[in-house]
């Protein structure tokens, strides 16, 4: 399939997947006995039956489920994600407001992960089966095995509480302020460690696999220095598969963001999501879920396209 058709096909498949995501999201929230209003009512003893009925009508919850879905989706496509029940504000405003924080955190973690993973992955592959490889393998495994919340707690307790070197982000700090880097460090490390470890392992195994191939022997037989063989020939091939893996990190970074933002009181989408769960704000839950999923799908799409670009066998 030519490149253009391939890209087109992938972009088009975005739509059915998003539909599926929206359906699943909606179903998860709405397909249980008791609707959101009864949930609110159960938390609020002054609610009378009349109040419930009124709320239901107002939020359109007295319509059949399927119709509610279409109403909701229709609104979403116009940018209306519904209302935050407790504050009566628009969900989409909330998302827009909180998004940059999460993006910054996520980006920091992602860059952190790659900066660590790529060199160490190369190193481990070159030193395969020797001491350096074993050591880095154990370190990488530790990184993966470390629960990120535990790491965050420990970092907080050591650096913020005991040593007092670090403080939680004060409210209303400008994102583009250079100080931001300081505030990003602890949460960024927390969120990035597991990703760094995973990527490093992927890098190592991709490179190790490539190094077994014939073209490497040929390159050596041509008399090229080992550095050229590794960095020019092997790396280029490994990066193809690593790129796709890097994009898939997005989902796990978002997962991690929830926990990390809670620990560090980082005002992003993750913290909002957590609060929404506690407060049973279904519109917020659905809105953030839909939004984050869309971002993830987009990243996967980009990864596929990048893969097609990088591999000449697909491109031509």
């Amino acid at each position: 399939m030519s490149l253009r058709r391939f890209i087109l096909y992938r972009i088009l498949s975005f739509i059915p997947i998003m539909v599926g995501v929206s359906v699943l999201t909606f179903a998860l929230i709405h397909l249980t006995p008791g609707d959101p209003v009864s949930l609110i009512a159960s938390g609020n003893p002054d609610f009378s039956a009349a109040d419930e009925a009124r709320l239901r009508a107002r939020y359109g919850l007295d319509e059949p489920v399927v119709q509610q879905y279409f109403t909701w989706m229709g609104n979403v496509l116009q940018g209306d994600f519904g209302i935050v029940y407790s504050t009566d504000r628009a969900v989409e405003d909330l998302i827009v407001r909180r998004l940059p924080e999460t993006i910054t955190l996520g980006l920091f973690g992602w860059v952190f992960a790659l900066l660590i993973a790529i060199p160490t992955g190369i190193y481990a592959a070159v030193r395969k089966d020797q001491l350096g490889d074993d050591f880095s393998r154990i370190v990488a495994l530790s990184g993966i095995s470390l629960p990120n919340f535990w790491l965050g707690l420990m970092l907080l307790s050591i650096f913020a509480v005991t040593l007092g070197w670090w403080n939680v982000l004060p409210p209303n700090t400008k994102l583009y302020h250079p100080d931001m880097l300081y505030y990003l460090i602890l949460p960024g490390i927390t969120i990035g460690t597991a990703s760094a470890a995973t990527m490093m392992r992927i890098m190592r195994s991709a490179m190790a696999e490539e190094m077994n191939k014939e073209y490497v022997t040929t390159a050596r037989a041509k008399g090229l220095p080992e550095r050229t063989v590794i960095l020019k020939h092997v790396l280029r091939n490994s990066l193809i598969s690593v790129t796709t893996a890097a994009a898939f990190l997005t989902a796990s970074i978002f997962s991690g963001a929830i926990v990390v933002e809670v620990i560090f009181s980082w005002p992003g989408l993750g913290l909002e999501f957590y609060d929404a769960i506690l407060l049973r704000e279904i519109n917020v839950i659905m809105g953030i879920t839909l939004f984050l999923s869309a971002v993830i799908i987009l990243m996967n799409l980009l990864a596929d396209i990048a893969y097609a670009f990088l591999d000449p066998r697909i491109r031509y």
Partner: peptide
């Protein structure tokens, strides 16, 4: 030196 399988002996990228 040349090898048996030319396809794998050449770097695909």
């Amino acid at each position: 030196m040349i090898f048996q399988d030319a396809q794998t002996a050449l770097n695909p990228v």
